[in-house]
Simulated assay, not measured.
Amino acid sequence: MKRTLLIIAFAMFSIFSFSQISPGETSDFEIDVEGWEHQIANPNDPVQVADGGPNGAGDGYLSTSSSGAGGSGSRHVFANDNAEWIGDYTSAGIVAFTFDVRNTNATEDLFLRVGFNGTGFNDWAASTNPVVVPAGSGWTSVTIPVEASDLSISGSPTTVAAILANVTQVRILSNDGSDILHKGQRAALTSDYDNIVAVDVLSTPEFEVQNNEFKISPNPAKNRLNISIPDGNGDMKLEVYDVLGKRIFKGLLTDLDSSINVSNWKTGVYLVKISSDKISQTKRFIKQ
């Protein structure tokens, strides 16, 4: 009997030890929703769609929606607490989530963030700054950083480090800054997702040397922001958002090197986004 109990205990320990987040963990939605759902079952639970993902015919993806009407299913958020998506994110070296997203709303932008629940019911941290995906966009690849410096406490008075060391649930949500950060905004929204990947510093494109990234300087800046875009991409749309997700600047970049006057902007953090039919990139800018 003791031998049997020891074997069972070892098996449970092995499952707990090795079935947790690791670099490269992926949800590609080729078969089902892979554990991504709302916390409470409701008519707006995410569904797997077998065809029409970013790779076209035969590529499955996850489609999610929210009613905005109040009650379960009213907020735009989906979550996962399966063993492979929880655990010690810090020790695993996870620095970002990458995924493909399609904003199918006609007029509403998405303000995407990642949220993490710790060991307590109210122990939450979420992305301080959102990645903005414009309304009506086609499939777009985004990167959301999830290191401690990229997150803010959104619940009880714990620490981001404590939450990342013992994540019990991860969620992806749209929040325009009008509500508690780890909660999806209460709005009638739809969006699609594919190829959600947890990446470490060696695999995320944000940390690789790339020739196709735009550059901003100086950063921080007081008076002017210089923007250099990659060669060969043609004219590019420029948008700047504040930390609440409000667009405060819009323009068109027609030259490889451009400069805009920021002297009248309020001191704080902004998101500078450039996009075209080929690429979409966002960088953080600090106005002094």
Rank of each mutant, 00 (worst) to 15 (best):
A126K: 06
A126G: 14
A126V: 07
T128A: 14
P130W: 04
V131W: 01
G136F: 09
S137T: 15
S137F: 12
G138D: 10
W139R: 01
W139K: 05
S141Q: 14
S141N: 14
V142M: 07
V142A: 02
T143R: 15
T143N: 14
I144Q: 02
E147I: 13
A148C: 09
D150W: 04
D150V: 02
L151Y: 08
L151W: 05
S152T: 14
I153R: 13
S154P: 07
G155N: 10
S156D: 10
S156A: 12
P157T: 11
T158D: 13
T159W: 11
T159N: 09
V160K: 10
V160A: 02
V160Q: 04
A161P: 02
A162N: 15
L164K: 08
L164Q: 09
L164S: 00
A165D: 13
A165V: 03
V167K: 07
T168G: 15
V170P: 01
I172T: 01
I172D: 03
S174F: 10
S174Y: 05
N175E: 13
N175A: 08
G177W: 01
S178A: 12
D179A: 11
D179V: 09
I180A: 06
L181Y: 06
H182C: 08
K183I: 12
G184F: 01
G184C: 10
G184R: 06
G184W: 01
A187R: 05
A188S: 13
A188P: 00
L189H: 01
L189V: 02
T190P: 00
S191K: 00
S191G: 04
D192W: 03
D192L: 05
D192T: 04
Y193R: 04
N195M: 00
I196K: 01
V197S: 10
V199H: 03
D200T: 06
D200I: 09
V201Y: 08
L202C: 08
S203I: 05
T204I: 11
T204N: 09
P205S: 08
E206R: 10
E206D: 14
F207G: 00
E208A: 11
V209W: 01
V209C: 03
Q210L: 14
Q210T: 11
N211Y: 01
E213K: 11
F214V: 01
K215T: 13
K215D: 13
K215F: 08
I216T: 04
I216R: 12
S217A: 11
S217P: 05
P218Q: 10
N219S: 13
P220S: 02
K222V: 13
K222L: 13
N223M: 02
R224T: 15
L225Q: 05
N226P: 00
I227N: 06
P230W: 08
D231G: 09
D231R: 12
D231N: 13
N233G: 00
G234E: 06
G234N: 07
D235T: 02
D235V: 03
D235K: 13
L238W: 07
L238D: 06
E239K: 14
V240Y: 05
V240C: 10
V240P: 09
Y241W: 05
Y241F: 14
